[in-house]
Design a protein around this nucleic acid. Structure first.
Length: 854
RNA sequence: GCCGGCGUGGCGGAAUUGGCAGACGCGCCGGACUCAAAAUCCGGUAUCCUCUAAAGAUGUGUCGGUUCGAGCCCGACCGCCGGUACCA
């Protein structure tokens, strides 16, 4: 294949057009106030998840999403919209630093090299980005504003009265540091010795680091945190107004993990203190037969009976030394020890034992539970293992199956519960909460799985915090000292201790005689939390985004989200997409943004698998390199194939013969306009003529315009391409071939195969009118419904739902005449003989169904 | 375990959202062109029965239901993929 000559000269014209588009700024988007800005044009902001420029280069998975957005961008431009379609680099982060440490090269050098490589690759696919807006998160002109946004978080709190972020000055309490949205906390963190840094919960998978797969342990450390938990309610509620896949919304809701329930205070025999537990089932309080605290619970030390001290200490130590991984592995077998004291159940005064067990987590709820083994599977398992009493207080509506005997976690009717006897579970919950609040022994409350966001890393290759420390207190740097650039360092390896690598830059650390710089850096997510804003106004040196640019590109009447279409992988469902929403809301509250959400419409592209049907990986050797596909079949074929494979959202396997299929299609399109002369040069085909379309041809052309237009809007690219193939099949044999067909067809194809269309447009323009300028800047054609109507319609004739014959009737026929025609068909006679016709159904334009009996 | 998604020819996938299942592409078979091949063009291609054709029967993971009519709606189940995991 690679040895034979190409079916059309893409190796010559694809790079030529890429260069031309670049040199003429063909895809520059105009901001309000810019020359050439058209205030009447609709804005369309279509965004890709910008890549991390890894050393491996571009993957066919990148190409899939980027082609989809490029088609939308090019389509909207042809429709006359003002399109913002930018690209940039998410270039801070662990892999660059790990690679730098391994090779001894500075991350700034390797990062720049990778960026250059990515840019070249993207340009070789013909994506219509506005390259004048290119940004990198590692550029000081960019991260200056990342640091500025951090200062906004630092200088703000969420006022419970308004449920909005406000400047910290409006806080009237005496400890502003306890309410700031960016705050310092001594917290048990995920420390990864292999990477020499802490990780967010989201970055730990199965007790190992998501990057590198090193083991992770828990240890308390002083860290910067962002108070994302102040936004839980709004992060859930505002999902409703977004055009996102339901599955992603659900993923975010589950991640935030809102549960309604109650806090209940249990007295402790012999102590002043009470233990507060959280439960979603206050209606089962009468069934609580013991209490369990997390091993790390702060009361344990104080309340443990002297006789139990040794055993309790041993158990706590054991839990502490277990890594997260072990705890996960051992999740199935319950362990725990009793503290040797009793708690008092506030609803009935009953004395119940208090245990510690590691199935109760310290970070969720209150770190203590009341155990109701009859109605909670975990409690049931624990009670069975340790022979604790089980008391049924909810009666199921239907008898339970054998295997569920003894534990019923569902809703039913309260029994053995004096205060709520006979009530249905929901009412029982309400009444119980009211009772608790009245007696002052508890209250209704809501808890969330979502924790505050651990925001500091002990690494070199990230944004330094704009913070200094003096006398043990932190304070922000003034805005005019931004950006805080990382020091130039030769040795930026982790120190091996919890001390960040920046500590080695002693000069830099020393801010003044008495003040020292913060040594942590921000996580990779920081830069990607707001890049979509910077694209609107990337060169602004006075503000993170100009007001007018923000209102134009990010504002839209009636919709909460600013970006019109955002395409990327599903792996960011709960990380980037939640973090970015949070920052956006803070900036919105503080009056810097006009809409409360960043991304209005979100689409997740599916995974492209290897031709063996499994995920592409180097070790499997099934990785497809986009560069080699371009070399063999051209960029247009690569684009078209990835769109033709199947629905954008689905995972699908790669097939090289499939690439050849679309390549052949493009060659057919080429030969509709071009012929090879005796010397082997491509010249305009002599079959082309200015000539009226036949009725059939006109119908195919307009059906294609309609289908392609509607399918692009629906992101159903594979079916749009089939329709274009149908068009080509109709016209390849047409001689003479009406030029009008190409005039209408080529703009439809140009978002998919822009190089080929640009080239044909140029050649046709040398002989025929209507091909002026660039195809990329032509006009999207409109279809005419009148041309789509057919004179005669074919009807299927069914008897009892089985097709027994066909008939054609004029399109204008009414039901009666179609029915009459059906009965006139002699082919039906044998099926109707001796039967009684019960009913006749005529579906206009489709079929006739005769229902018979006998 | 829980949550979500998906099961259609040899393969990737279509199907106006309840109306002729298999569009389009790949692959395969046959033909034209050619000394021959490649490329290109034309035709065929769900399965079974049949020399062939006509005709017929079967067919969208399985079983059942609703309906004149089900790939699509309802119930139960099976399989695959993704997420998540002691969250009280």
């Amino acid at each position: 294949m690679s040895l034979t000559r190409k079916h059309y000269p893409f190796p010559e014209f694809e790079p030529r057009w890429q260069k031309h588009w670049l040199e003429t700024n063909a895809f520059r988007a105009a901001n309000p106030g810019d020359p050439g800005f058209d205030p009447k044009a609709k804005k369309f902001y279509v965004l890709d998840m910008f890549p991390y420029p890894s050393g491996d280069g571009l993957h066919v998975g990148h190409v899939e999403g980027y082609t989809a957005t490029d088609i939308l961008a090019r389509y909207h431009r042809l429709k006359g919209d003002n399109v913002l379609h930018p690209m940039g680099w998410d270039a801070f982060g662990l892999p660059a630093e790990q690679y730098a440490i391994k090779t001894g090269q500075h991350p700034r050098v390797t990062t720049q090299r990778n960026i250059d490589n990515f840019r070249t690759q993207l340009q070789s696919i013909g994506f219509s980005y506005d390259w004048s807006r290119e940004i990198s998160t590692t550029d000081p002109d960019y991260f200056r504003w990342t640091q500025w946004i951090f200062l906004q978080l630092y200088g703000a709190w969420v006022n419970p009265a308004t449920n909005k972020a406000e400047p910290i000055a409006t806080y009237k309490g005496n400890d502003p540091d306890s309410v700031r949205l960016a705050f310092v906390s001594e917290v048990p963190v995920n420390w990864c010795p292999g990477l020499g840094t802490v990780l967010a919960n989201e970055e730990v998978v199965d007790g190992k680091s998501e990057v590198g797969g090193f083991s992770v342990e828990r240890r308390p450390m002083r860290q910067w945190m962002l108070r994302i938990t102040a936004y839980t309610e709004r992060l859930i509620a505002d999902l409703d107004g977004l055009d996102w896949p339901d599955s992603i919304k659900l993923l975010q809701r589950n991640w935030i993990g809102r549960s309604e329930g109650a806090e209940v205070h249990f007295g402790l025999e012999g102590f002043e203190e009470t233990v507060t537990v959280f439960t979603t089932r206050p209606d089962t309080l009468f069934g609580a037969t013991y209490l369990v605290l997390a091993p790390e619970h702060e009361l344990v030390e104080k309340i443990t009976a002297a006789t139990r001290r040794e055993a309790v200490e041993a158990y706590r130590k054991e839990c502490n030394s277990k890594s997260d991984l072990e705890r996960t592995d051992l999740a199935k077998t319950k362990s725990g020890v009793p503290l040797g004291i009793s708690a008092i159940n506030p609803v009935n005064g009953e004395r119940i034992p208090v245990w510690i067990a590691d199935y109760v987590l310290t970070g969720y709820g209150t770190g203590a539970i009341m155990a109701v083994p009859a109605h909670d599977e975990r409690d049931h398992e624990f009670a069975t293992a340790f022979n604790l009493p089980i008391r049924e207080v909810v009666s199921p509506d239907e008898p339970q199956s054998e295997k569920d005997q003894g534990c019923f976690p569902g809703e039913g009717t309260a029994i053995n519960s004096p205060a709520i006897e006979g009530l249905r579970t929901p009412e029982a919950k309400h009444k119980m909460i009211a009772w608790l609040e009245e007696k002052g022994v508890g209250r209704g409350t809501i808890t969330y799985k979502l924790r505050d966001w651990l925001f500091s890393r002990q690494r070199y290759w990230g944004e330094p915090f704009p913070i200094v420390w003096e006398n043990g207190a932190h304070r922000p740097l003034p805005e005019n000292e931004l950006p805080v650039e990382p020091p130039a360092m030769e040795d930026f390896k982790p120190t091996g201790t919890a001390e960040p690598p920046l500590s080695k830059a002693t000069e830099w650390v020393r801010y003044s005689e008495t003040a020292r710089r913060e040594l942590n850096t921000m996580p990779q997510w920081a830069g990607s939390c707001w890049y979509y804003l910077r694209f609107c106004d990337p060169k602004n040196s006075g503000r993170f985004i100009g007001k007018e640019a923000e209102q134009y590109w990010m504002g839209d009447a009636g919709k909460p989200g600013g970006v019109d279409l955002y395409v990327g992988g599903t792996e960011h469902a709960v990380l980037h997409l939640l973090y970015a929403r949070f920052w956006h809301k803070v900036l919105f509250d503080l009056g810097h943004l006009t809409t409360p959400e960043p991304f209005q419409r979100l689409v997740n592209q599916g995974l492209i698998l290897g031709d063996d049907g499994v995920k592409m990986s180097k070790s499997r050797g099934n990785v497809v390199n986009p560069d080699s596909v371009i070399a063999e079949y051209g960029a247009d074929s690569l684009r078209l194939y990835e769109m033709f494979m199947g629905p954008l959202e689905h995972g699908k396997p790669w097939s090289m013969t499939g690439v050849e299929g679309v390549y052949r299609f493009l060659a057919r399109v080429w030969r509709m306009a071009m012929n090879e002369d005796q010397e082997g040069n491509w010249i305009l085909s002599g079959d082309l003529a200015e000539q009226e379309l036949t009725n059939t041809q006109r119908r195919v052309v307009h059906a294609t315009i309609k289908k392609v237009t509607e399918d692009i809007e629906a992101l159903s690219f594979n079916t749009a391409i089939s329709q274009m193939m149908i068009f080509t099949n109709e016209f390849t044999s047409a001689k003479p071939r009406p030029v009008e067909a190409l005039r209408l067809f080529l703009p439809l194809l140009s978002p998919f195969a822009p190089h080929l269309v640009e080239e044909l447009w140029m050649h046709l323009g040398r002989k025929f009118p209507g091909f002026e300028g660039l195809a990329s800047q032509a006009k999207w054609p409109a279809w005419n419904e009148e041309y789509l109507v057919v004179d005669e319609i074919s009807y299927a004739v069914q008897i009892n739902g089985k097709v027994r014959g066909h008939l054609t009737a004029p399109a204008s026929s009414d039901k009666e005449s179609v029915e009459k025609a059906a009965f006139a068909d002699p082919a039906l006679a044998p099926h109707l003989e001796g039967k009684e016709v019960k009913k006749v159904i005529v579906v206009p334009g489709r079929l006739v169904n005769i229902v018979v009996a006998g």
